[in-house]
Amino acid sequence: MWVTSSLTTALSPARVALGNFDGVHLGHQGVIAEILHDAPQRDLSLSQVRAEGLECEPSPRLSGDRTYATVVSFNPHPQEFFTGRARSLLTPVPEKVEQLRSLGVEQLVLLPFTAELARLTPEAFVAEVLQRHLQTQRVSVGENFHFGRNRSGNSASLRQIGQAYHMEACIAGLQYLEGHRISSSTIRQALASGDVTQANCLLGRPYQLQGTVELGQQLGRTLGFPTANLALPADKFLPRWGVYSVWAQLEDGCKWPAVMNLGCRPTVAGDRPTVEVHLLDWQGDLYHHSLTVHLMTYLRPERQFSSLDALKAQIHQDCQTARSHLQSRP
């Protein structure tokens, strides 16, 4: 997938899914599905490129009359720009790239959200971004999409403005699952309360934490339960503190049943939040390796124990409970 933050290096003509897409959940996938297509084989340049700090695949050359399935998103998130407050993300940029690529998206354009961009009227945004640079033939958005200065544009005005450029507009209606609206905010609320099952249903996949294993205090090893301490991106949204049953995915793609503790470890006087993962029946060295943790079940809140022996007994019980849950829910 081609990743760029500059419209001058974007591939065109394009079919564009437009939005923030934080989470790439089932609702987002419905919007993106409207611009996917079976792309013909393309020639590739020999040069490797780097965009947004990511290793990207070779840039495809334009070929014939094909169009590129493109997601146009914003960095930073517009809410972060307007409030001046850092915003945690369900899918930081590297994770978003991974999810979009898996759906078949061919290009991600991460527009820098600046004051200049925020001042564009809806008409100017369509003319400058969608028409002049991307030569958009089809654009897809959600029903509640807003854009342009002061959020004055919406999905209906996008369709109207696009008609002047013979631009087809697809508007995806709001989606619900078991009475819950599929949205990033609903997923955040579910994760904050520990309702991993609901969050995973709305995402269409398990919520994941992805990072590098770093050296910790090795207290788990002294208790007989060695853990991998996971360093996460600073902007990753963290779910409710506590203990989870998870699948731990190694760099080779293999998944191991595991127990994860997220919190400050009050029994051993922890002073900052940590993510510790104990892989069941695992032996080996994971230091400095990437690890992806897929959250499956919230087992219990974090709490302080009267002794290390009591903590050890609880960890043993957590492992047994996690093993049982994961065996029944692969």
Score class of each variant (00 low, 15 high):
Y244N: 03
F237P: 00
Y176K: 10
V275E: 01
I32C: 07
S12Q: 13
S63T: 14
G194A: 07
V72T: 06
S5V: 00
C264E: 11
E95P: 05
H294F: 10
Q189G: 06
F145Y: 11
A33W: 05
D195G: 01
R61C: 09
H77P: 08
L158G: 11
N261Q: 05
F81T: 10
G153Y: 01
L209W: 00
L238D: 02
K312A: 13
R159M: 03
P78S: 08
H316Y: 05
L7C: 05
G153D: 03
V71Y: 08
H294I: 02
L11N: 08
G204W: 12
A248P: 05
P233Y: 01
Q99V: 15
R151K: 07
D43C: 04
R300I: 00
F113G: 07
R149V: 14
L279V: 01
V49E: 14
L44E: 12
E95F: 11
P239H: 02
H289R: 15
C56Q: 14
V97H: 09
H325V: 10
S183R: 08
S152V: 02
S140W: 03
V141K: 00
L108D: 13
V72N: 05
S102P: 11
E302A: 07
R85Q: 14
S157A: 06
S183F: 06
L46V: 08
N75V: 15
E55K: 12
L130C: 10
E98S: 14
V196T: 14
F145C: 08
Q210Y: 12
G162P: 09
L311C: 09
A164S: 11
P40F: 04
R329F: 11
S152K: 02
G30W: 03
V49M: 08
Q29Y: 11
R205F: 15
L158H: 02
N144M: 04
L191K: 04
L11I: 13
I32T: 03
V259T: 08
R181W: 02
A118S: 14
Y207D: 07
N229F: 13
C170K: 13
L311K: 00
P78V: 10
A127I: 09
V259N: 01
R205S: 12
F21H: 07
H294N: 12
A172I: 15
S185R: 02
G242Q: 01
Q163D: 08
P13K: 04
V109Y: 07
S193P: 00
Q189N: 08
T4M: 01
L299P: 00
A10E: 11
R240T: 01
G173T: 10
G53L: 03
A234F: 03
E214P: 01
G153W: 01
V16L: 09
Q218M: 09
Q79K: 12
G242P: 00
Y244S: 03
G19D: 07
Q217R: 13
W256N: 05
A14C: 07
H180K: 13
L223H: 02
R272N: 02
S155D: 07
L62W: 10
S245R: 00
G204C: 14
S324A: 13
E214S: 11
Y207H: 12
V24M: 05
V16H: 06
A86S: 13
L295W: 04
H37F: 03
F113P: 05
F81W: 10
E98R: 14
Q327S: 13
A169I: 10
D22W: 09
F113E: 02
